[in-house]
Design a binder for these strands. Structure first.
Lengths: 111, 111
DNA sequence: TTGTCTTTCAACCAAGAAGTTGAAAGGGGG
DNA sequence: CCCCCTTTCAACTTCTTGGTTGAAAGACAA
């Protein structure tokens, strides 16, 4: 199971600039220049960030005519969700078992 | 809104070793030695990983008698979930609007 | 008190990440 | 064709990270 992908995705989203990019791309595709506008950094730096997001599969840029817009790939959210929910669920089951155990001990004291 | 916390959490989970720790802690609390056992790295390295997880709020270690067990803080999952769902929803709404637009154009051709 | 186990501190190293500058390709539109 | 805009490549700097070794505290039990 794409552990390496998960690593790339988490790492990609660990950067505030890249998270902001994703947030803005959730509202719609954008050209690199539009994306870069709010940031006080060179265009090359923005391209670097985009490459990180691309290699993580968070974002794609269709081949074609030149201002190639940046597109958010929503399915990466499913990937993270999968990981998170799996572990959240296990932890919560554990709590339920503990609660059940405590309830049992309470129902049947001093055995 | 704790952007810095989100950064720390994503960064903490961007490491495979730390993700594995979280996965194992979802099954139940563990002492540092138990946690460290599968990894081919020094105990100090494990403590370093734990500090990263602690500072991100992913994990706590209750003060008290000495082998202080490591405990997974499940609510960080809510934090990530919040961020993910917020953006996923926005992106999906966009798709729905686009679909509606396309349907409209199809219903009323050549206008 | 004397070990023994747990935990932390400090210094160091190699590799990677984020940013810079500068230069070079690529691709349309006039 | 030439210009301009977009995109990429390369080298360099600075800071962070994951790991090491070695040593020192802390805490508990005998």
């Amino acid at each position: 199971m794409a552990a390496d992908t998960l690593t790339r995705v988490f790492a990609a989203l660990a950067d505030p600039t890249r998270r902001d990019m994703v947030a803005r791309l959730a509202a719609g595709d954008a050209t690199v220049n539009q994306l870069a506008e709010p940031y006080r950094m060179t265009l090359q730096a923005v391209y670097k960030h985009l490459r990180v997001l691309e290699e993580a599969g968070v974002v794609t840029r269709p081949a074609g005519p030149q201002p190639r817009p940046v597109h958010l790939e929503v399915q990466v959210f499913d990937l993270m969700d999968g990981w998170i929910e799996r572990h959240r669920r296990r932890a919560e089951q554990r709590y339920r078992r503990l609660d059940a155990l405590l309830a049992e001990m309470e129902a049947e004291p001093d055995v």
